[in-house]
Amino acid sequence: MSHAPATTAPGKSIWDGGISPMNVSYGKLMMWFFLLSDAFTFSGLLITYGLVRTSNHAYAGLPKDFHFAVDTWPIPEKVFEAVPFLHGVELPLVFVGIMTFILIMSSVTMVLAVEAGHRMDRIAVQKWMLWTIVGGAAFLSCQAWEWTHFIVGTDTPTVAKAFVNGEWVSHNVFGANLVENQYGPPAFADFFFFITGFHGFHVFSGVLLNFLIYYRTVTGMYDRRGSYEMVEKVGLYWHFVDLVWVFVFTFFYLV
């Protein structure tokens, strides 16, 4: 979008009206402030994860000697080591690496759609929006598989002890739910579900928005409007989803 340059008559401030001091449209500015508020929400989730993790008993030994226990916070590379079609093969963090790559690539195709929109190139916008939707759908599919694996669990259970009717009873824990899990303290799985779930819901909404933009591009709405700025606004949202994943990847899977 082209705007009037932020120059004013003598004695007038750029905030006196008539021009856009931030040099962006209202819609784009509001998208920025929405994303800022969304960043606070994700910060709340991730920082609370940090609080609970640092206040829990941390494993101090070597990664190869690590075994799951319900009272020890797990090391993520031991939890996330499965890859589809390769059952029983230990490939730590490989699948989540693939997911990260998919999301970065879909961010690139999104920014290429924005570039095409600047040039009013409908065919190119269609092409790159479609690739972005494919990337988002691929990411969601990967996440569905990862959640399934996390919930179902590994072949060998973790033994948990509970004090029932005055005596200690052991029982096997397979996989994870919100109450108990085989990987570590209940809070570990709770944070996994809430953080990756909240992010996944953002990806899902992003795919719907991207499809709406794609549909409106195909039907020529933005050509008639004379501007592809909606692609930019939804693009900002989509890049933000990628940005959040960068933080989730580091603080949930790597650290």
């Binding site: 040099n23 962006v24 920025w32």
Partner: peptide
């Protein structure tokens, strides 16, 4: 994060008052 926000989201090329906001 700086590359995503600065280049992909184009914030680096916006006016200063928006960047700081």
């Amino acid at each position: 994060a700086a590359y995503i926000v600065g280049e992909f989201m184009h914030l680096r090329h916006e006016v200063k008052v928006l960047i700081w906001s």
